[in-house]
Amino acid sequence: MIRSLGYFWELIKGSLITARHFVVNMWFHTLKLFGIKTKRRGAVTIQYPEQKKALASRHRSLQRLLKRQDLKPRCVSCMLCVTVCPSECIYVEAAEDPDPDIQKYPSTFIIDLSRCCFCGFCVEACPEDAIRMDTGKIDLAQSTRQDLIYDLDKLLK
C-alpha cells in the first residue's frame, strides 16, 4: 500500500520537473519575444529526423575504406584496426597481392556494426589512412543483425 503510494509520489515529482522546465523555458522564450535580453536562453530542440543538425567536422560516423588511384583498397591488411578495436568487431582476411610493393591486400574485410561503439580507434590505428569515419551517415539502424554486417563492397562504396 505504502509502496504504491510512493509510486504515485514519484509520478507527481516527475510531472513537476517537466512542468518546471516548461515554465522556465516559456518564461525565457516570452522575454525574448518582447526583446528583453537575458543571460540565460530558453532551450531549443530540433525535429530529428525531419530536421538535421550539421555534423561537426571531427564527428565519427559510418566507416569507409579508401581506395588507391587504381581503385584497389588502400588497406594492406595489417590488422592493426582489428587489434585495437575494443569491441572486436572487425575481421580481416589477407591475400597476396601480385605487386611486391603492396604485398598484402584484404580479400575479406568485415565490420560488424552491431558491436561497433564508434570509438574511432580503428581510424587512429591505421598506418595507411585506409579507413575513415567521415561518411556522415549516422542513421544506421537496421531491423536485422545481418544488415549490420558491412563487408568490403559496402565499405568501399
Binding site: S77, C78, M79, V82, T83, A94, A95, E96, K104
Partner: peptide
C-alpha cells in the same frame, strides 16, 4: 602462415 593472422592474436 604467411598473411593468415598476426602473432599477437
Amino acid at each position: 602462415f604467411r598473411f593468415k593472422t598476426r602473432t599477437w592474436f
